[in-house]
Design a protein around this nucleic acid. Structure first.
Lengths: 342, 342
DNA sequence: ATGAAAGCGCTAACAA
DNA sequence: TTGTTAGCGCTTTCAT
């Protein structure tokens, strides 16, 4: 109840070190204007006493903020939790805390989260969820982020957004092409696609890559079955079930992320369809369990944890004149869920 | 660069409403000492202007804090990410933010995180990782949490009994007994156990439950193969490999969490051991992918997301005289990874 | 019921 | 190089 004193303040450190408040502040912040000797002494005292600055006072006084807000669709999705893991690790190294918010794949909720984080005066906002293909959808978010940046906030996103900020760009198009080429090389021609919502740029880009590869072989997505559903495991199950109900079953199914691929495998198993003997299945992302599925999943590896680190690292750099873009690269990981068409 | 004004302050709302700062503060905080009419007007103006309080100023002035710190072993583990998901959801409903830290299953790191969160002046700390059986290890954490509570902070833990704070207690012992009884009822007697580190209370409790069930049939863990490894998927792979190298192979393997069970299934597949025909496998937790594995995993369901909600809900209640304990309950979920011994 | 004013712990001008 | 001081935006006595 009674908030007993006990919590160390900067003034306590200053007194112990025999310097003024200002000098102590400068020394600990690593700012100039303090002799090395004095600075060392202050830091030593601070360490001995176990002093930790009050971030609220610090931010209120106009100093640096130590918290970063991360917006994900949902944290209990390995794509996001692996990204978050990498980001939390880097944050830890830099003495920062990561606040996680859910957008639930809803642009309005995402906007609300951006506004909330901004109002909370976090120092950095990272948007990790996919962008939206509709140009209008992100207009409000762009305005909110712009206002946030104008107040000194830093921003980075993961994925292709129309937000005009620093971005880590997953190799969605090239990855989509690579995974499709893999199936084509195995002789597959009757290929079905299990996709997340069309309005996600992630989905659009991966589809575009697939279309490129298909075109080389005179195939087109327009004439192939493409089943849209939630970009999740249950979504994959549902989409696969729909595809299996069509007259001609495919010899291969491309799921646009691993979560959907897991759902596809589950649905195929329920129907006693053997993978890869009867149908090959591929995913995208290479989340950690992909290698432990049965059959293990052929997929496109994105460096998820590294992407999280990179996004935060970008945001922590001094702001550049124009938005930075950084591509992730990708690797095709061939495992047991694909085989050549018999 | 220049931190342009633009951000609304309480004084702006007060002026618009034609009242003093103090009155506006009281009205928005829902404190008494303001007439209903005035309070309504202030709230109306606040809403119209889109005012959001500066949490740093608020906390510095001795008001309520709106952030909760969550300590997990690692967020990219479905056990924790599902717990976090539930907690983030409830936090959102209450207008709170959740900061996530990793302890990496290291008691020292965990202690450091507790201290850090405490120094950051979060309002609530939730420790979600397993406790440690060694009393000395928990002593430091208990002291740090006590100090935090003395300063007015609220604390809740998931699955730790030695901390003397509000706790959500997973049904580890009963669940361990239930899953073991299931195997025994199927006729299994040569049962191996794949366990996480002994010093985790979660591991100890689940083992104790298993031992109880085994004792009924005259069996003892001492005479059964128990392989310890990391409480993760790779750990499960490694432990299973070790067990398979022994002379007499078991007819069933109990993995003490689903992550390890996934590793076990993976290792068995690599060795061409059929599940459940040759060996039955069970897990614990029922993370979301458990149902989509091949074979789908027989396991003990804990209400993970709900546990996250409950832990936060407990912490948000007014502090009680003595620590509250809340058991989770559990359900045995029988799927395809277990069969009766042939 | 309302207002005036004193901080909370820190940073950043401004002085010395 | 160092110290002094005025806030940051809010809550909370203490007056009125």
């Amino acid at each position: 109840m009674s908030r007993s004193r006990s919590q160390l303040r900067l003034i306590d450190v200053a007194e112990q070190a025999g310097v003024s408040l200002a000098t102590a502040s400068r020394a600990l912040a690593g700012r100039e204007g303090v002799s090395e000797a004095v600075a060392d002494r202050v830091r030593q005292v601070s360490r001995d006493l176990g002093y930790v600055a009050n971030p609220h006072a610090r931010q209120l006084a106009g100093g640096a903020t130590s918290t970063v807000g991360l917006i994900v669709h949902q944290i209990d999705d390995l794509y996001f939790s692996e990204i978050a893991s990498g980001m939390i690790q880097l944050a830890g190294e830099r003495g920062l805390m990561v606040q996680i918010c859910h957008s639930g794949r809803d642009p309005d909720a995402e906007l609300a989260q951006i506004r909330h984080l901004s109002a909370q005066r976090v120092g950095v906002i990272i948007v990790a969820g996919s962008g939206y293909t509709d140009p209008g959808t992100e207009a409000m978010a762009r305005a909110a982020l712009l206002a946030f940046q104008e107040r000194g906030g830093r921003v980075a996103v993961i994925g292709r957004h129309a937000l005009n900020v620093d971005a880590v760009l997953p190799d969605n198009r090239d990855g989509g092409r690579a995974i499709t080429e893999h199936l084509l090389a195995l002789g597959h021609r009757r290929i079905a696609v299990v996709a997340g919502p069309e309005e996600l740029t992630t989905v659009a880009d991966r589809l575009a890559g697939a279309a490129e590869a298909l075109a080389v072989h005179g195939l087109s997505l327009d004439r192939l079955p493409v089943a849209y559903a939630d970009f999740t495991c249950p979504g994959g199950r549902e989409a696969a079930a729909r595809i299996l109900r069509e007259r001609s079953t495919p010899t291969a199914i491309i799921a646009l992320n691993d979560a959907m691929a897991i759902g596809v495998l589950s649905a195929l198993r329920a129907q006693r369809v053997r993978v890869p003997d009867e149908i090959s299945v591929v995913g995208f992302n290479d989340v950690s369990i992909a290698q432990d599925l049965a059959p293990s999943l052929t997929t496109v590896r994105l460096p998820l944890a590294e992407m999280g680190r990179q996004a935060l690292a970008m945001a922590l750099k001094p702001r550049s004149a124009r938005p930075r873009k950084r591509a992730t690269g990708h690797h095709l990981i061939v495992r047991d869920s694909t085989a050549s068409v018999s």
